[in-house]
Lab assay of single mutants.
Amino acid sequence: VTLFVALYDYEARTEDDLSAHKGEKFQILNSSEGDWWEARSLTTGETGYIPSNYVAPV
């Protein structure tokens, strides 16, 4: 399991995006899409895309 933590708040801009709150942890499901990674929030269980530069490894 690849875990990352949000460094900043991010507000989803499309229905495919996933909002993130600073300190929230995510499981990365797919990081092969360049700057946008598919992730699952460990807080809400929701999945979507987050900007890779907004997260760091735990």
Rank of each mutant, 00 (worst) to 15 (best):
A39G: 04
T43S: 12
T2G: 11
N30M: 07
Y54A: 14
I28E: 00
G23R: 01
W36P: 05
N30A: 08
A39V: 15
V5E: 08
E33R: 15
Y54S: 11
Y10H: 04
T47D: 03
T44F: 03
E33M: 14
E38L: 15
Y49S: 05
E11F: 11
A39E: 00
F26V: 03
A39W: 05
I28G: 02
R13S: 10
S32G: 11
L3Y: 13
T2L: 13
G34V: 10
I50Y: 01
L29W: 06
L3E: 08
I28N: 00
G34Y: 09
S52E: 02
I50E: 01
K22Y: 06
E11D: 09
A20W: 06
K22Q: 08
S19V: 06
V55L: 15
S32H: 11
D35R: 08
F4T: 03
G34M: 11
S52D: 01
W37I: 07
R13Q: 14
F26R: 00
F26E: 00
N53K: 13
H21A: 10
H21V: 13
E33L: 14
R40L: 10
E46I: 10
A12V: 04
N30T: 08
Y49V: 06
E38A: 07
K25D: 00
F4K: 01
A56T: 11
S52Q: 07
E38Y: 15
T43W: 14
W37Q: 03
N53I: 11
Q27D: 05
A12E: 02
A20L: 15
R40Q: 07
Q27N: 06
D16C: 15
D16R: 15
N53A: 14
T2N: 11
Y10M: 04
V5S: 03
L3K: 04
N30H: 07
P57N: 05
V1Q: 13
W37Y: 10
V55A: 03
E11Q: 12
E15H: 11
V1C: 15
K22W: 05
L29G: 02
E33T: 12
S41K: 08
V5T: 04
D16E: 12
L3R: 04
A12G: 10
S41F: 03
Y10P: 00
S32F: 10
T44A: 02
H21T: 13
Y10D: 00
V1I: 13
G34E: 12
E46K: 15
D17L: 08
R40F: 08
V58D: 08
T43D: 11
E24V: 03
V55F: 14
L29P: 03
K22N: 04
P57M: 09
T44R: 04
D35I: 10
L3T: 09
E15C: 14
G48I: 05
D9R: 05
P57Y: 05
D16N: 15
D9Y: 06
D17E: 15
S41W: 03
A20I: 15
S52K: 15
T47C: 09
L29T: 05
G45K: 04
V55R: 00
P51H: 09
L18D: 00
G34S: 13
W37N: 01
Q27I: 15
K25V: 15
Y8C: 15
S31H: 10
E38H: 14
Y10T: 02
T43Q: 09
V58R: 00
K25R: 12
S41D: 02
R13A: 11
S19I: 05
E15W: 09
G45L: 06
E38W: 15
G34F: 08
F4I: 05
Y54R: 07
D35T: 10
E15T: 12
D9F: 07
